[in-house]
Nucleic acid binder design. Structure first.
Length: 424
RNA sequence: GGACAGGUGGCCGAGUGGUUGAAGGCACCGGUCUCGAAAACCGGCGUACCGGCAACGGUACCGUGAGUUCGAAUCUCACCCUGUCCGCCA
């Protein structure tokens, strides 16, 4: 969420940011309306506070008179009338503020200067690693996975619904192995604190990271506002310090967690949904960082590197794509997607999205730090990235490491965790 | 789930309707003293919004929300959270 002051004081930059996303035409009415509402709000505040000051003074005078044994009925009546006026003005002010908030919720973050303008056709591959395998004879992962009894899609659909997977035997071991490999790497080599978080969070947390109110349809709600299943561990991790003021010495802060992730994927039916490519419940290790604003750019590179390290260790060819402004997520200011090549389906699969949110999320979730004693608190920058999402990594492993006889070589780094050299 | 108890500033803790944004203490910052430090003493020390070039002024905030009142940290109601005991349970 932006600050209403951004609209007031940096309207030109805001409009330019929307233009770069290709969203200015759509958002111009919202911005213009916010500018008017902001003026309205400030006038209303002045009107209310003026009357409150008068009421406070009069009330004190009532107290003084009563103590002195004098009559104060006239002042009391006058103050009662003031109180009614305040109530009326305040409800007007409140509806203005609700409208302002609704407007602000509709405006995405402004992307950083390094982000290309325009839609996804302007996405830029910034580097590639490894050599994608020729696709000719490789079977798609769903065929080889079922054949090797690594996962069971029909029975997943039977017990839960389509888009839910039962991993079995070596496949189940593989999931557990990926979790341990990734957590070990990030905690031992990359300096993240390992966290184990609840997968149910409250509404405030979902609002804090921006899933609500805009994307409620895509979330699993538990009913009667008893909570939501997390769509990613980003939600609990980023909200860890919600409504807190951190000490500068705590930054940068780095947390990682494994969690299952729950997504309704409403409206996504039919597209890239075969096998493990798009499911309602999947597993992921997530990285989250808080940092000082001036460190933001470097921290994004660092975090992206941490996610890439997983793919290198697994020996999976990948590319890093800098998303153009129009393809960058709503809250993000800059995003690198990591795409791994899956020769069986002949596609690059997105296995990670590493983003910096500048202070957009931190304002919403009220995460601040104090640079030095006596200084005003300011918002931290938040970052996060998957490192990595399991199902597509599994898909890539089953295709990249597939042998002509249908068996699959276990990547070397995973062998101690899986306890096998070969799935056959 | 039931019964009690409780939620006040970074922390501890006073405060049951009227200069209480909130005593006191601790912590922290600045100063005096000291060769330096400690101690002692003096001063400062919440967050946000509105107005103002600024100095500064105003408003709000004592778990959250609503209510009573001229006036609420203080009274009423609902909810949330924490603690203790009981029940249940992986």
């Amino acid at each position: 969420m932006h600050d209403i002051r951004m609209v007031r004081e940096q309207a030109a930059a805001l409009r330019d940011g929307m233009r770069r996303r290709g969203a200015l035409d759509q958002l111009e009415p919202v911005i213009a309306r916010l500018e008017a509402l902001d003026r309205e709000r400030r006038l209303a505040i002045q009107a209310v506070e003026e009357r409150k000051a008068a009421r406070n003074a009069a009330s004190q005078e009532v107290g003084r008179r009563k103590k002195a044994g004098e009559d104060a009925a006239d002042l009391q009546a006058q103050t009662r009338a003031l109180g009614e006026e305040i109530a009326r003005l305040e409800s007007e002010l409140q509806s203005t503020e609700v409208l302002i908030q609704q407007g602000l919720y509709e405006i995405p973050n402004v992307t950083l200067p390094a982000v290309p303008e325009g839609d996804e056709t302007h996405n830029a591959v910034v580097r590639t690693w490894g050599t994608p395998r020729q696709a000719d004879t490789v079977k798609p992962h769903w065929e080889v996975g079922e054949a090797l009894h690594l996962f069971d899609l029909p029975r997943g659909a039977k017990i839960s619904g389509s888009g839910f997977i039962v991993y079995r035997g070596g496949g189940a071991r593989l999931v557990r192995a990926l979790m341990n490999l990734m957590l070990d790497l990030h905690t031992r080599e990359h300096g993240y604190e390992e966290c184990w978080v609840p997968v149910v969070v409250n509404r405030a947390s979902m609002v804090g990271t921006g899933q609500l109110p805009k994307f409620e349809d895509d979330m699993y709600a538990l009913g009667d506002d008893q909570g939501f299943l997390i769509p990613t561990a980003e939600v609990p991790l980023t909200n860890l310090c919600r409504d807190e003021i951190l000490d500068a010495t705590q930054l940068p802060m780095a947390m990682c967690a494994y969690s299952p992730c729950f997504r309704r994927e409403a409206g996504a039916a039919g597209k890239d949904t075969r096998g493990l490519l798009r499911v309602h419940e999947f597993d992921k290790v997530e990285l989250v960082r808080y940092c000082r604003p001036e460190d933001g750019a470097a921290q994004l590179e660092l975090l992206t590197g941490h996610a890439e390290a997983v793919l290198r260790i697994l020996g999976l060819p990948y590319r890093v794509v800098l998303l153009a402004a129009g393809d960058t997520g709503f809250s993000s200011a800059m995003t690198y997607d990591l795409e791994v090549f899956a020769p069986g389906v002949g596609k690059w699969l997105e296995v990670s999205s590493c983003s910096i949110f500048t202070e957009y999320q931190a304002r919403r979730s009220n995460i601040r730090f104090r640079a030095a004693t006596g200084e005003k608190p300011q918002h931290v920058y938040t970052l996060n990235g998957s490192a990595l999402a399991f199902p597509r990594v599994i898909a890539a492993i089953l295709e990249h490491y597939q042998q002509p006889d249908g068996s699959v070589i276990v990547p070397e780094a995973l062998r101690p965790y899986v306890g096998l050299d070969l799935f056959q």
